[in-house]
Amino acid sequence: MANLFSIFEPSSSIFSFSLNWVSTLLGLLFVPYMYWASPSRWSLLWTKITQTLHKEFSALLLPSHLGVSILFISLFSLIVFNNFLGLLPYVFTSSSHMVMTLSLSMPLWVTLMVSGWINHTQHMFAHLVPQGTPSVLMPFMVLIETISNVIRPGTLAVRLAANMIAGHLLLTLLGSTGPSLGSFFIISILVFSQMLLLTLESAVAIIQSYVFAVLSTLYTSEIN
């Protein structure tokens, strides 16, 4: 098991400075040219995606929070760039580590909780007891709602990291069996299955980024 998960350990370094986390910033290299080069099909496609995301997030947010959608679009962009970069060979997958995913979810959750309890204290208390709950069940509902609220940043972080780790582990396990296979037919099947898994992982990279951003948007809409 130690050898299996060693592919996720930071290993590249210069003068004891780890270079693996530098891959998190590689997505910034694809952005600046959009501001000075003539629009290409890729930049127009990305503009269309961001406009669609803005409409989706604005529908979930309250009218007073519409300007916050740019935050969640940026969050989606950061995660999806890192997820796709992690599919490239020899590129460190930072989004598969709890250090990064918790760094994204925890500050956002803490900010929402502090803002909600300071500015909308009565609403936050009322949110602990769903409407129509019998009086006998109210203490249990408060406990359940409190626990579900506290574990939100952890579920966001674990969901993203676990989904990225699972796909990469499966690709690694199948790829490591290739040298031990002697039949050309079996190797061809293995390569084809790897291509299918890579396509699936590309879809997972987009879906998990969208889920992370949408859930963060829903948590924001609950504080008011």
Rank of each mutant, 00 (worst) to 15 (best):
S135P: 01
I165G: 00
I187Y: 07
G175H: 08
V150G: 01
A166H: 12
A126E: 14
L128A: 07
T172Q: 10
L174R: 05
V191R: 07
A166T: 07
H168N: 12
A126Y: 01
H120D: 09
T121M: 04
L160N: 02
V142I: 15
M141T: 08
L160P: 02
P179Y: 09
G178L: 08
M141C: 04
H168A: 14
A166K: 14
V142Y: 06
L160M: 13
L173D: 08
S180A: 10
V114E: 01
L190H: 12
L143D: 02
N149K: 11
I186C: 01
G132T: 02
Q122K: 11
L137E: 15
S176N: 10
T111V: 10
P139H: 09
F125I: 11
W109Q: 05
G167S: 09
S148K: 05
I189V: 15
I151V: 15
G182K: 13
G178Q: 04
G178W: 00
T121P: 01
P153G: 08
T133Q: 10
I165L: 09
R159G: 02
F184V: 09
I187F: 04
M141G: 03
M113P: 00
G175W: 02
V150A: 08
S183V: 02
V191D: 06
S115Y: 12
T146Y: 07
H168I: 07
V136L: 12
P139R: 03
S188E: 13
T177E: 05
S135T: 09
L190F: 10
N149Q: 05
S176K: 11
L169V: 13
L173W: 06
L112Y: 03
T146R: 03
I147T: 05
L112D: 01
F185E: 11
A157Q: 00
L181T: 06
G116Y: 04
N149Y: 07
V136T: 12
L143Q: 03
P134N: 08
R152D: 04
I151P: 01
M141W: 14
S135M: 08
S183C: 06
V158R: 05
L173Q: 14
W109S: 12
I165Y: 00
W109E: 03
W109C: 06
N119D: 09
W109K: 05
P179C: 08
S180N: 05
G175N: 07
